[in-house]
Design a protein around this nucleic acid. Structure first.
Lengths: 350, 350
DNA sequence: TGCCGTATGGCAATCGGTTGACAAACCTGC
DNA sequence: GCAGGTTTGTCAACCGATTGCCATACGGCA
C-alpha cells in the first residue's frame, strides 16, 4: 500500500462525480463542474462563456473539469434564460425539388459556422402545412429563412414583426431578402435567343402566387420589347416536371420557336414531353430554364439555363439573419446575386 | 354612458394582460393565462396537457384564455423540465444526393404527424463534420436517425447507448435499423440481366466504408454464382456522378457486357462518360443502379434500377424512434422494405 | 347527520443555465 | 500604511414550464 495504493475509484473526486452523473442517468451540468473545480456554478458559466471575465488560472481549472466530465451545455436551459435558442428555421415549399439543394447546403454551412443549428421544414407546396410548420417552428428559432413560400405578403410582414425573417427569391416591403440578378440573366438569355434568330418566344409561367415567376416575366417582357421579339406568357403552371409536361401542348399551340420556362423542372418536363411527342429540341423548339439544377446536364440535349448561385443565396440569407448590420434596403441594392447564362444543347437556331 | 360606456381598453382584463405581454416583448406564458383565467399556473399546465385532470368547466376557461392571448408553449421551458425536446435529428452524408429526398420527406411527414420537429444535419461526406454535427445535435434531440453515415460501428454503438438511434441502410449489432430487401431486388435484377443473355457482369462498388455497398455486393455475388455468371467487383469509388465517370475506364477494361453500380448517381456518371466516349448504352454496355432517384428518367436511355421506397424508410425510421415498442431485432425480421426492379432503357441484350 | 373516498385546484420545488449586484482580495501609488 | 480603483468570484433571482404532494370541496352512502 502507501504509494502502491489500491486503485480505488472512490478516491478520485472526478470519478465520484462521474458515477453520480451516470447514476442520475443524465449529462454533466455546470454544477458538477463547479464541484470538481471547486468554484461557484456562476464562475463556471462565465469561464465557459465570457472569455476574460474569469482569471486565466481559474478558467483553466474549469475547462479541465468540463473536459474531464465530458460536459455538453444544455441548450434548452440556456435558451430558457437567454431567450436565444441558437436555432434557425428554413422553410421550403418542396424538398424534392433539386432547386433547394444549394439553398439548404449554403444555409447549413453558414449556420454551422456560426454555431447555429438549422431546422428545416417543408410545406409540400401546401399553404396550410406551411402555416402550421411555421407556427410549430417559431417559438424555437431565433430567425427564419423563407425560401419561395406560399405565404402572402401580409403574413410574411406579420411574421417579420415577430422574429427576424429573410426571404429568398422574393421581395416584401420592409423584409430582408436575398435576390438573384434576374435582369442580367434574362438579358443574357434573350440576347442568346435573339442571336439564334428567334423572333417569337413564349414564357411558361410558374404558380400565380410566385413572386419570382412574375419577376422573371416582367424582365423577359422588357427584354423582348427592346429587341422587338414577340413574347407571350403561358400559364400559370405547377412548377414541377409534371407541370412542364402538361404545358407542352399550349406551348406548341402558340407556334413559338423558343420557350423559356419559369424553372428548370418545368423545362425538363417540357423536354420530356417533347421527346415523347416527337418534337425535336432544339430543331423544332428551343427550351431554356432558370436555376441550373441537378438534372439539367443529364437530359438530352442538356438544358440551357440561367444559373443562380443558390449556395451563396443560402449562405447570405443566414448571414443577414445573424447580423442585422445589413441595412434593410430591399431592391436595387448592388448586392443582387450574380447570375449567368449556361448555354447547352437545348437552344439552337430558330 | 352606462350601457353606452366609453370603450376604454383598460377595463378589459385581457387587453391589460396583452399590453403587458407586448411591453415585455415576448410571448404569453402560462402565468398570463393563469391570471386571465383566475387559476393557478399549474392548473393551466394541466388543463393544457393532461386531459381529464381538470374539470371541463375550468379547462374551458383556460383554453379560452390561452386562445385569447395567442398562447404558444415555450418548448425550451418544457424541455428543461421534462428532458424531452420533441426534436429528432436526421443525419445525412450529402444533402445534394437526390437519394435523400425520400428519406427527408418521409421523416418530416412522420415527425410532424407526431408533433415532433426534425433537425437535419449533413456531413458533406466528411467524418469530422459528421462527428461534430452529431455532437452539436445530440443534446437537443430525443433521438437520431442516421442515414448512411461515415461513422464506424463502434461510434454508432456508443451513440445508441446515449440516445435512441435508428439506422437507415445499415445494420449494427444491437441498434435498430430500417433496411431494404436487397436480396429480392438483386435477384430480380440478375434474372433480368441473365434473361438478356449477359454472362459477364461487373459491380461498381461505392466507398469502402459503406455497409450497403458491401451488402449489395454479397447479394450480387451470390446471385451470380447461382446463375453461373462471371462477376467482378470494381472499386471502391466515390458515390457520386463524378465517381461513376471516373470508373468507366476500369469497367470497359473488364470487358463485361453489363455493369451494376452501387447507386444511381454512379450509374448516371457511367452513362454520361460512356456517351462522351462513344460507348453506346445499352448496345455495348448495359447499366443498372440502385434506389431509383430523381434523374434516372431524365437521362437517355433512362436508367434501369432497383427501386427502394425511401419515403417509407424515412417514415419507419421515425416511427421506430418514437415507439420503442418494436423489438430490437435487427436483420431477418420480415419487415425489410420491399424493393422492386424498374426496367428502363439502359439494359439490353448482351 | 356524519363519514369517507374521490375529484379538483393550489403550493412550491425543480430542471440547468445566465446575470446583476455585491463583497472580498488584490494592486496601485502616495 | 492607507485611500481608491480594479479584478475576481459568489449570491441569489430568474427564465417558463411540469409535477409530487397536499388541502379543500363535493358527492355518495349508511
Amino acid at each position: 500500500m502507501g504509494t502502491q495504493s489500491v486503485t480505488e475509484q472512490g478516491d478520485d473526486p472526478a470519478e465520484t462525480i462521474l458515477a453520480r452523473i451516470r447514476a442520475r442517468g443524465g449529462a454533466a451540468t455546470i454544477y458538477d463542474i463547479a464541484e470538481l473545480a471547486e468554484v461557484n456554478p456562476s464562475t463556471v458559466s462565465r469561464a465557459l462563456g465570457k472569455p476574460g471575465r474569469i482569471s486565466a488560472a481559474t478558467a483553466a481549472r474549469v475547462h479541465a473539469a468540463a473536459e474531464r466530465l465530458d460536459f455538453r451545455i444544455n441548450p434548452m436551459a440556456r435558451a430558457l434564460q437567454t431567450g436565444k435558442t441558437r436555432m434557425l428555421g428554413l422553410v421550403l415549399a418542396d424538398i424534392t425539388n433539386p432547386f433547394v439543394f444549394g439553398i439548404v447546403r449554403g444555409a447549413e454551412l453558414e449556420a454551422a459556422a456560426a454555431g447555429y443549428t438549422l431546422v428545416i421544414a417543408e410545406s409540400q407546396e401546401s399553404g396550410e402545412n406551411e402555416a402550421e410548420a411555421i407556427e410549430r417552428l417559431l417559438p424555437s428559432v431565433d430567425g427564419l429563412v423563407l425560401a419561395t413560400t406560399r405565404l402572402g405578403a401580409g403574413a410574411i410582414g406579420r411574421l417579420a414583426a415577430r422574429k427576424p425573417v429573410v426571404l429568398i427569391n422574393r421581395a416584401v416591403e420592409g423584409v430582408q431578402s436575398v435576390l438573384p440578378d434576374v435582369e442580367a440573366g434574362v438579358e443574357a438569355l434573350m440576347s442568346h435567343l435573339a442571336g439564334l434568330g428567334h423572333r417569337s418566344v413564349a414564357y411558361l409561367a410558374g404558380p400565380d402566387s410566385s413572386w419570382m415567376s412574375a419577376r422573371r416575366w416582367s424582365s423577359i417582357l422588357a427584354a423582348a420589347e427592346q429587341r422587338d421579339i414577340a413574347i407571350v406568357e403561358i400559364g400559370p403552371g405547377v412548377p414541377t416536371i409534371e407541370g412542364g409536361r402538361e404545358a407542352l401542348r399550349r406551348v406548341n399551340a402558340a407556334r413559338v420557336s423558343a420557350v423559356i420556362a419559369y424553372n428548370d423542372l418545368m423545362a425538363l418536363g417540357l423536354m420530356q414531353e417533347a421527346a415523347a411527342r416527337g418534337v425535336v429540341v432544339p430543331d423544332q423548339l428551343s427550351v431554356a430554364g432558370f436555376d441550373d439544377i441537378f438534372g439539367t446536364e443529364l437530359i438530352t440535349p442538356p438544358l440551357t439555363t440561367v444559373h443562380a448561385d443558390l449556395i451563396t443565396a443560402g449562405r447570405r440569407a443566414v448571414q443577414e439573419l445573424l447580423e442585422p448590420g445589413t441595412a434593410v434596403q430591399i431592391e436595387q441594392s448592388d448586392d443582387l446575386l450574380p447570375t449567368r447564362l449556361i448555354v447547352r444543347g437545348s437552344t439552337g437556331t430558330a
